[in-house]
């Protein structure tokens, strides 16, 4: 096997001489040309958002949405943050931002804790029927949320947390469970089982192995889960609308209510500033996390 592979790799490394690849070959101009045009399409909306948000309204009315501002102003940002009106109130996006933060932190922690323990139990402590529950969980992630919306309303009402932030936290934990459990299950099953056995012989129990062996070995996957949940929960709209009261609306709902509010004159620069502000948290997470984000979304696609 090794003997036959060797000459092949050699011939792949040493160019045969018939087709030298130049940087400016026709093929490369085509390739990079297409990619650059495609990237322009992707960048354009971000560019438009930023440009519009730093123009004054007169300039917006006059000009071209793609043109950079003649005069930069941060007034729209200030207004979007603290003064913009929905149909109900006029304290801008800040209210929604803080609501989202209050929803985000416990939801992310709780959902990751629950799902990581699930994944760990599914890999190392299988009990009768555990695989059945896992299968239901995965198929459950395909059920349209609309089917479960109302039963959960009843459930939350019975628990006395309907309309509260904690109700929404619970909903995020529930609906984050399938994908995160899958993520952790796949990761934990890549850890050699013998390590788990050794720890059992060493007398460590369920939680001992989880905290002392598994957790320290799994920090990367916790980061992936964190990215997945922060962006996912921050971007949620439907659950925010259904399970909270207007004064507790998360940022996305607040944003939609500001921009699509039919009252008053449309201030496009403020709207774009508000849109950008709402997108900022996931964007920052995305640009910092780089390849881990890709890993997170791919985890949802690759079935273990």
């Amino acid at each position: 096997m090794a003997d036959t592979a060797l000459p092949m790799t050699k011939s792949a490394v040493v160019p045969s001489g018939t087709k030298p690849r130049r940087i400016l070959s026709g093929r490369n101009i085509m390739l990079y040309g297409i990619l650059i045009v495609v990237c322009l399409y992707y960048i354009l909306p971000l560019w438009v958002m930023v440009m519009t948000s730093v123009k004054g309204m007169p300039e917006v009315r006059l000009g071209n949405i793609f043109a950079p501002p003649v005069e930069i102003t941060f007034q729209p940002w200030v207004k979007a943050w603290s003064e913009a009106c929905t149909g109900l109130n006029c304290d801008g996006l800040s209210r929604g931002f803080w609501n989202s933060v209050q929803i985000l932190i416990p939801s992310v922690i709780l959902s990751i804790v629950v799902a990581s323990v699930n994944g760990y139990a599914l890999v190392n402590w299988r009990f009768k029927g555990s695989d059945v529950f896992f299968t239901i969980l995965i198929f459950g992630s395909f059920i349209p949320y609309q089917v479960m919306l109302y039963p959960i309303v009843i459930l939350l009402r019975e628990m006395g947390i309907y309309g509260t932030l904690w109700g929404l936290v619970l909903v995020h934990t529930i609906f984050g469970m399938p994908i995160l459990t899958l993520l952790f299950r796949n990761y934990f099953s890549s850890i050699p089982e013998e390590l788990f056995k050794a720890a059992r012989v060493d007398g460590a129990g369920f939680w001992g192995i989880y905290f002392r062996i598994m957790l320290p070995m799994s920090l990367p996957i916790f980061v992936v889960a964190l990215i997945l949940q922060v962006t996912g929960i921050w971007n949620d709209f439907l659950f925010g609308v259904v399970y909270t009261k207007p004064e507790l609306y998360p940022m996305t709902v607040q944003l939609n209510n500001i921009v699509n509010s039919v009252q008053g004159v449309k201030e496009y620069n403020v709207n774009m500033a508000a849109t950008l502000l709402t997108g900022l948290v996931p964007l920052v997470v995305y640009f910092i996390s780089g390849k881990l984000f890709v890993r997170g979304i791919a985890a949802g696609a690759v079935k273990g």
């Binding site: 962006t231 944003l255 709402t278 984000f293």
Partner: peptide, 9 residues
């Protein structure tokens, strides 16, 4: 990057 954004945005 658009995939990281909310549908609302």
């Amino acid at each position: 990057y658009p995939f990281a954004l909310s549908f609302i945005v």
